[in-house]
């Protein structure tokens, strides 16, 4: 087998038997993170001082934990207090929690970018604070957040390779398995690297397209 063939077969095996877990873990973790991020930011913006202080503390803690450590805590640590989760679920929850902290930051900075003048205008036509947020501030903040959120997805996708550490057979794990079977690491690792790169590059094109659309709406000049 020549090396191009080796690369291609590795690629095919990784796509068929590993990639689906990578996408599953990162996509579910992303949406868990989005839900958490929205909850965090709602509490920060609309909640009282104590509530938003608590959320801030939680965000600082989550951002301060290495992802692989959190995965270990959830998969190996929680069983000792009676919570046993399988490795895929553990990976989704762990990566989702951390991403929630980052996504709340992305959403918050967009809200701050929209807020002052738009809020004044919304209140001046008689909208309640709640309606001002739901009909004016949040819809714009979400649009502004889109590029950041897509970027965040690419970060989770790459971080999902950490699930290797708790035995989830995802793309990177599959590449390592091929390498171990062939006694040759370079080609399978190159294959999986190209795969991550291809996905991240396509998503970066999506981000560029969103920026273009946002400019039409008058954001970010």
């Amino acid at each position: 087998m020549n090396s191009i063939e080796q690369l291609l077969t590795a690629l095919i095996i990784i796509v068929r038997y590993g990639l689906s877990n990578s996408i599953l873990v990162s996509t579910l973790a992303f949406f868990l993170g989005l839900i958490l991020g929205l909850i965090f930011v709602f509490i920060e913006v609309l909640g009282g001082r104590l509530a938003s202080w608590t959320v801030n503390l939680l965000v600082v803690i989550l951002r301060g934990i290495p992802p692989v450590l959190l995965l270990f805590i959830i998969f190996y640590g929680l069983p000792s207090i009676g919570i046993s989760l399988n490795n895929v679920v553990s990976a989704i929850i762990g990566l989702g929690l951390i991403s929630g902290a980052y996504q709340s930051q992305i959403l918050r900075s967009s809200i701050q970018a929209v807020a002052a003048r738009q809020m004044e205008a919304a209140l001046s036509i008689g909208l309640s604070k709640w309606s001002a947020y739901t009909s004016v501030i949040f819809p714009q903040a979400l649009r502004l957040s889109l590029p950041g959120l897509v970027n965040e997805y690419t970060i989770i996708l790459k971080d999902s390779s950490l699930a290797y550490a708790i035995g989830v057979v995802e793309a990177f794990t599959q590449a390592v398995h091929i390498a171990q079977a062939r006694f040759e690491y370079f080609t399978p690792l190159l294959a999986v690297a190209l795969l991550y790169l291809a996905i991240c590059f396509s998503l970066s094109q999506v981000v560029n397209y969103i920026y273009l659309k946002l400019r039409v709406l008058g954001y970010g000049q």
């Binding site: 003048r117 738009q118 004044e120 205008a121 919304a122 209140l123 001046s124 036509i125 008689g126 004016v136 819809p139 714009q140 649009r143 709406l217 008058g218 954001y219």
Partner: peptide, 17 residues
């Protein structure tokens, strides 16, 4: 009160979305 008072801003403040 605000419903009965219209306000026109220096920077228009139209809802961009």
């Amino acid at each position: 009160v605000r419903e009965k008072i219209g306000f026109v801003f220096q920077h228009f403040n139209l809802f961009l979305h």
